[in-house]
Structure formats: C-alpha cells, structure tokens
Write a protein that binds this DNA or RNA. Structure first.
Lengths: 198, 198
DNA sequence: ACATATCGAAACTATCAGTTTAGTTAATAT
DNA sequence: ATATTAACTAAACTGATAGTTTCGATATGT
C-alpha cells in the first residue's frame, strides 16, 4: 500500500505528462473564466486557445467544471494573509475589510461563479472547501482564537459562529447583488459585531 | 373544453391563452426543480410531463431559467410574515429564526439554486430581486424601523446593514455549505447582533 | 528494439435550448 | 355563417457543446 513512494528518479514507464500543456490549459481556462462566465466558456475553446486537444483535457480532468476549479486554485492560492499589526481584534477587523476588497475584485467575482457552479456537485464542493475555503477560513478562526486567549474576546465566544457573522454578510451581498460589497460596508459589519455598535 | 366562466369584459381577438397549460407548465417545472437541479431539467421534459408543446413554453417565457423563476414565485409567494408577538426586537429575532427554517427547507434549497442560476443574468436577477427578495427583505426592514422608532434600537442604526448582518450569515452557510443552517445558529446570530452577546 | 503512456487532430455521439413549419382550434367581429 | 386573429400541438429542424473514440505520432524507461 505505501510502497508507492515516488522519488525524483523513479518514473513510471511511458511518455510523461506534458507540464507545458497542463499549464496552458489552466492559464487559458482562467483567462476565459475572467472574460466570460463559466457556462459561456466551452471546452473546445479552451483546447483551441491552449493549443491542446480536448482529449488531453478530459484525460486529466473529469469535467469542464473541474478544470475551472483547478484553474482558480492555480491562480489564487496564497492571498489574504493576516497583517500582524495592532491587537488581534484589530487584525481580524483588518482582515474582514481586505476580504471585502477581494470579493469585490475580479478574482472575487470568479470565486462567486465557481461556488455557484459547483453548488450541485458534492465532489467539487468538497474539493473547493478543502483545498481553498477552509484554509482561508482558518486564518480568521486562528486570529479570533488568539484574541480569545489574549482576553480581547469573551472566553465563551463561539469562534465558528463569529466568523460566519463577520464574513457572511459580505458573501450575502456578493451573491444576491442587492447592494455593493465595499470597505464601508465591511467596517460597519466589524463595528456591529466587534464593537457592539448598534 | 370550455369550463371557464370569466367576465365578459372586452377581450382581445383570437384564441385566448390557456390557463390550464400555464398552470401545468409552472407546476411541472417546480416538481422537476425539486427533484433535480435546474441544469438537469430539460425544456422538453417539462413540455412532455406538462402535456404541452415546447413551442408553447417559449411562446410565453424567453428561456428555461425564466420558467423556473416563475415556477418558484408561483409556489412560494406568501410565506414568512412577521409574527406580531412581543417587542419589535423580539419579532425581528423570531423572523430571523423562522427564515433559517425556510432556508433549510426544500423551498429554501430551490431558492438557492435559482439565485445561483440567475447570477449572470442581469434581467432575471432584477426580476428576482424585485418580485421576491426585496419584498421579503422589506419585512425585516419595516420591523427594524419600528424598533428604532420605539426606542428599542439606537436612532442612528443603519437598518439596511443591520438586516444584512442578521440574514447574511444564513445565506452564507446555505451557499458555501460548510455548516448547517439551523435554529441554533439563527439564535446565535440574533444574540450577537441584537444582544451584543459576544 | 520494445513496451508503455502521452500527445494532437479530427471525427463522432448524444443532449439540449430554442425555432420553425404546417395544420388545428378557440375566441371575437361583422 | 364567415372572416379574422392568435394560441395551440406535433414534429422536424438548427446550432451549440460536453465528452468520447480512433488513429497515428511521439516521448520516455527497460
């Protein structure tokens, strides 16, 4: 079972997968995703613009949506870290505000489309949560826990719920589109939740 | 089959629209929507099960998505009124809790699918907001304004934002699916926002 | 040289949104 | 009655596209 340790030297027989094609597919998919929606991008268009065959795409991904998800991960893997300035509460507030800027950006809108597209697919949803969302979420969870330990938040604070209340309204506006997601809104949320300013 | 004894007011010339077909289309669309997602329901399947021609569907609706939207409106038009018991704040809290139950229900999940499907269509999104969402939202806005006037909320409260903070986290969980939307969660949100219980 | 697995090109299948056509039916107006 | 108007059905049709298959070529390890 665990014999299959892959070293740099041992390589399975046969022609190896083309890294050039892989990168071309993911980058092309992302560019098209940025230009149109997911639905209006066809697999043949990706293949043509990436200079590969559709057979190659489906050799490595089970569906168009899976390609899109991977293309998104490939592009936006390491953004929105905590800025460790000020108290933990202030770091959390700052992170909420910068999250709003991300959601309002092109990448944020693409993320929204991804989330909506994979809504009905348990497999892709799980992959999105595990490979992207929960990693990001843990940044907020961590800093909230530190605030708790430091006495900046009550010890009985439910951190999971706190995070949902802080970030949820941002996503809410993003999906429903009834109002804009901007810094002012993010500041108001943080004030209501963290400063009890109702 | 003439069964309809409508008023003999002036009616435009020509064969009138079949109310029977209209209802059959909307009801069939809703049932299929409940069973599968929007994407996996075909217009031909709706036509067949409703006993009409696809031409009739497209005679009255511009797209499959528009049919789905109408089918949803047709089903869930008058739910979730305010229960006028207790203070205005308590009525608001109660409404948030009952909204969570709605979102967790089958109709709530269908609504989520509708929202995701129309995300990229400004026309359908506008229709959804105006014919459904903003009407519901105004229920919360109204009661929050009453609470404000009654001195249960500070006079400088931004009601729009308050509503987003109260209801946003519910939709957030619904769309992301990282946690369940239940009564306990709704109560926690209301406590944090309305009782400053952090 | 041989085995293996990838590659691109292109044809192919299947599905489906939406349209068109042609004939039929239900209403009003004269 | 008859003409007019518009909705109706059935069914064929168009165009797009997701995903598959076939085939010959190519890149590796043994």
């Amino acid at each position: 079972m665990k014999e299959n340790t892959k070293s740099k030297e041992s390589r399975p027989p046969g022609r190896p997968r083309s890294e050039v094609s892989k990168k071309a597919i993911l980058q092309t998919a992302y560019q098209l995703l940025k230009k149109h929606g997911i639905q209006s991008v066809s697999s043949h268009e990706i293949a043509e613009k990436a200079g590969v065959s559709t057979a190659t795409i489906y050799r490595w991904w089970p569906s168009k949506e899976a390609v899109m998800l991977d293309a998104f991960f490939n592009k936006v893997q390491s953004i929105l870290p905590i800025n460790p300035v000020g108290s933990f509460i202030e770091q959390l507030r700052d992170h909420v505000i910068r999250s709003a800027a991300f959601l309002a950006s092109t990448d944020g809108k693409i993320m929204a489309k991804i989330i909506l597209t994979i809504y009905d697919s348990p497999t892709l949803k799980k992959e999105f949560l595990e490979r992207f969302y929960l990693l990001r979420r843990s940044i907020g969870i961590d800093i909230a826990n530190k605030a708790k330990t430091a006495g900046e938040l009550p010890l009985n604070t439910n951190v999971e719920i706190l995070i949902d209340v802080l970030y949820g309204p941002l996503f809410y506006r993003l999906f429903l589109g009834h109002e804009v997601v901007n810094e002012s809104f993010a500041r108001s949320i943080a004030s209501i939740v963290l400063d009890h300013s109702l």
